[in-house]
């Protein structure tokens, strides 16, 4: 007589796994913003944007525009990344030393992007076929042209907020395809090159303190 117990155990594990997978597949996007308590500029962790993604998007061009695009400026001085979702856009421009800007804006139905940031920073671009963004940015008095390619996780924009030894710490990172990173940590408004984050978990050590950088989505 063969024992059915072990087989039932395996079967139960398989069913549980499939159940969790279907749960992830159906609700994964919706809860995407919930683990991230910290608010990025323009990223309101309200349930409103998630509803927009959960329901089918009215325009196919917008639907195709969801995702993250990364690349470097034409002069190779800085990295640029744009994250799109539900017709909204967030961008991070960073040279890895002292020039950075967070920008937010919208994606029009024709695929054009218009984003603005602090201190008059601007970023304009055009989506090309859902695979590429070509555009220009004005940040810190400089004018840059860039081409961004659609990237897969863990490439993208990451941000960390914290208080270390009384100083306000804001970190921003662009993880490029191939694992290269460009980032800046600002301590009480003073920018400097950022330490490397673990793109899988967002773990990073700033001034001896363990922080978590979270992926940024609109």
């Amino acid at each position: 007589m063969k024992r059915p117990g072990p087989l039932l155990t395996l079967l139960a594990g398989l069913l549980l796994g499939l159940f969790m997978l279907s749960l992830d597949a159906t609700t994964g996007t919706r809860s995407a913003s919930s683990p991230y308590k910290e608010k990025s500029p323009g990223v309101t962790a309200s349930p409103t944007p998630s509803k927009a993604t959960a329901s089918p998007s009215p325009s196919p061009s917008r639907k195709a525009a969801a995702g993250v695009y990364t690349g470097r400026t034409d002069d190779d001085s800085s990295a640029v990344a744009v994250s799109l979702r539900g017709g909204r856009a967030i961008a991070y421009f960073c040279d890895g030393h002292n020039i950075e800007s967070w920008l937010k804006g919208t994606v029009k139905d024709d695929g054009s992007l218009h984003l603005t940031g602090d201190h008059g920073a601007q970023l304009n671009g055009t989506l090309k076929g859902g695979r590429q963004i070509r555009g220009t940015a004005e940040v810190g008095g400089g004018h840059y042209a860039f081409t961004l390619d659609r990237a897969r996780k863990p490439s993208g924009i990451y941000r960390a907020n914290s208080q270390v030894a009384g100083a306000r710490i804001v970190g921003g990172w662009i993880v490029l395809p191939g694992g290269r990173q460009v980032g800046i940590v600002t301590r009480d408004g003073k920018p400097s090159a950022a330490p490397v984050i673990d793109p899988g978990t967002g773990a990073v050590t700033v001034d001896g303190q363990h922080l978590t950088a979270h992926p940024v989505t609109p």
């Binding site: 749960l23 992830d24 609700t27 994964g28 996007t29 809860s31 995407a32 897969r152 996780k153 863990p154």
Partner: peptide, 9 residues
Amino acid sequence: HDPTGTAFN
């Protein structure tokens, strides 16, 4: 498969 980065929490 393309890791989603997020999932049910």
